[in-house]
Simulated scan of single mutants.
Amino acid sequence: MPQKLSPISKPSELVASVQEKNLVIVDARAGAGAKDRYAARHLAGALFVDLEKQLANVPADASKGGRHPLPDLMQFAQVLTQLGIGPDTHVVVYDDKNGGNAAARFWWMLKAIGHENVQVLDGGLDAAVNAGFPVSSAEETPSIPEKTYERLRWTLPLSDINEVEKVANDVDYLVIDVRDKDRFDGKVEPIDLIAGHIPGAVNIPFTSNLDANGFYLSPAELKEKYTEALNGRDAQHVIVHCGSGVTACHTLLAMAYAEMEIPKLYVGSWSEWSRTDRPMFTLTKD
């Protein structure tokens, strides 16, 4: 295994590395019936991680942190041990939405605690199956890692609602909303209470990181795309958000794949912002 892994694993690479001793494959699909869908059909050997219960501390009131706040660090350390993940583990994580479900979120969380050997499977579940990776409906059992994570801290940059409010209209900063254009424009809102966006934010849908076949654009294409968007701004002056801090990680992953510095993640995102008295752009008022 190379010293520095690409954050993206091609399906053929996963097929080739299946016998690797320290490999742990994680299925991070989310949404209704995710665990049942995993149980019915998943990549052989893959372990399920639950966005709602293991990758977030879902609050009763989403106005305080959004719909998917980060979990307590001690809780996350326990989750990693349960999945058989330690500091020396090579993790490949996938979902059924080309990384836009929770695979990129889990990648970001591992990177944020300093775990370098983690990749997202390009194209997700179906791409691996098409490449010849076997599927299973068996109950999978994790191995106990030789070393475990105990004391953790988030080392990647984070933003919060107060900073976003302060800088959203500052030309020296860039606030990127990765939701689809109709949600950003306030035409539809399938999840949160109010349709619209944070005034001053720009819309770069995370789906634009992918080609027509659902695979990530090349690092060169992504670098050109985001270098133009940032327009000379330092990564510390860039904040990326979405609905609840999940799909925003898809864009952070894209920038890492392009060998760019990872900007700040605003985890609370629109789900938090839209439940407060902060200014909002909607179709009925600005």
Rank of each mutant, 00 (worst) to 15 (best):
F184P: 00
L47V: 12
G66A: 04
V15A: 12
A60W: 12
D72S: 12
A30K: 05
P71W: 13
T247V: 10
G243R: 06
R179S: 02
N101D: 15
D61A: 05
A62P: 05
L156W: 09
D234M: 11
L210F: 09
H237F: 01
L217R: 01
G200R: 07
Y38F: 14
A30H: 06
A28E: 02
W154N: 00
K285I: 14
K223S: 11
F281W: 13
W154A: 00
H237W: 03
D234G: 08
E146R: 09
G214V: 04
V167N: 06
G66V: 00
Y226H: 08
D27P: 04
K187N: 06
S269Y: 00
R275I: 05
Q236W: 13
G45T: 07
S6D: 13
D36Y: 11
C249I: 07
G214P: 00
P59D: 04
A220K: 06
E52C: 09
L174A: 00
N57C: 15
R179V: 09
H250F: 14
Q82V: 09
E139R: 08
S12R: 10
A32G: 04
V118K: 01
A195W: 05
A28F: 11
K10Q: 15
P205K: 12
Q3S: 15
G268E: 07
S208W: 15
R278Q: 15
T89W: 06
N101P: 07
I198S: 04
N101G: 14
E189W: 01
L70P: 03
S136R: 10
A131V: 10
P279N: 07
G86Q: 01
T155M: 11
L230P: 09
R278D: 05
